[in-house]
Amino acid sequence: MITTRDAASGPVVEVTGDLDHATAPQLRGQLAALTIQPGQRLVLDLGGLEFMDSSGISALIVARTLAHAAQAGIALAAVPANALRVLRIVGLDELFTLQPDAETAIASDGTDG
């Protein structure tokens, strides 16, 4: 399940369950529909993520591209250990700011990935 909400720093997208070939298109669609202002930060809350395949990784890269096109930052929050391992293997942990939870990501200063 993918839900969105607004925070003072920008949109927060919460991903619960699987982020795979079946659900990644939904995430990309919801990301494309977001309004992200310059200077804001897109937060992807992955605390409820159970599984992520290459389609999910691709969707995260799309999110980063959209945020940067809007001159906004992006942070991944509450990344589960199994997903963090994959991000580290493919080097994406260097492209994203990782925060322990959504609240910390929302409150951070915005100088992020």
Rank of each mutant, 00 (worst) to 15 (best):
P25D: 08
P25A: 08
P25H: 10
P25Q: 09
Q26T: 15
Q26R: 15
Q26N: 15
Q26F: 14
L27D: 06
L27M: 06
R28Y: 09
R28M: 11
R28V: 05
G29N: 14
G29A: 13
G29M: 11
G29V: 11
Q30L: 12
L31W: 09
L31D: 00
L31G: 06
L31A: 06
A32P: 10
A32M: 07
A33M: 03
A33Y: 06
A33N: 04
A33F: 09
A33H: 08
L34Q: 11
I36M: 03
I36C: 00
I36R: 09
Q37C: 06
G39H: 00
Q40F: 07
Q40R: 02
R41G: 04
R41M: 03
L42I: 09
L42V: 05
V43Q: 05
V43G: 04
V43A: 00
V43H: 12
V43E: 00
L44W: 10
D45R: 10
G47V: 11
G47R: 10
G47K: 06
G48S: 04
G48F: 05
G48L: 05
L49E: 13
L49D: 13
L49H: 05
L49T: 08
E50H: 07
E50Q: 14
F51R: 03
M52C: 15
M52L: 12
M52P: 01
M52R: 00
D53Q: 01
S54N: 04
S54H: 03
S54A: 12
S55R: 02
S55V: 10
S55T: 11
S55W: 04
G56H: 06
G56P: 02
G56L: 04
I57H: 03
I57Q: 02
I57V: 13
I57S: 00
I57W: 10
S58C: 10
I61Y: 12
I61D: 02
V62N: 05
V62L: 13
V62F: 15
V62C: 09
A63Y: 10
R64C: 00
R64L: 12
R64Y: 03
T65D: 07
L66H: 14
L66F: 09
L66C: 03
H68L: 08
H68A: 08
H68R: 15
H68C: 01
A69T: 11
A69I: 09
A70N: 06
A70L: 12
A70C: 09
Q71K: 14
Q71S: 09
Q71M: 09
A72L: 08
A72F: 01
A72H: 05
A72V: 05
G73C: 00
G73L: 01
I74K: 09
I74N: 03
I74C: 07
A75C: 01
A75I: 00
A75N: 13
L76A: 04
L76G: 05
A77K: 07
A78T: 08
A78K: 09
A78V: 08
V79Y: 15
V79I: 14
V79M: 12
V79Q: 08
V79N: 06
P80N: 11
P80S: 12
N82R: 13
N82W: 12
N82D: 15
A83H: 04
A83E: 10
L84F: 15
L84P: 01
R85K: 14
R85D: 15
R85A: 13
V86N: 02
V86H: 07
V86M: 08
L87H: 04
L87N: 03
L87G: 02
R88P: 00
R88Q: 12
R88F: 12
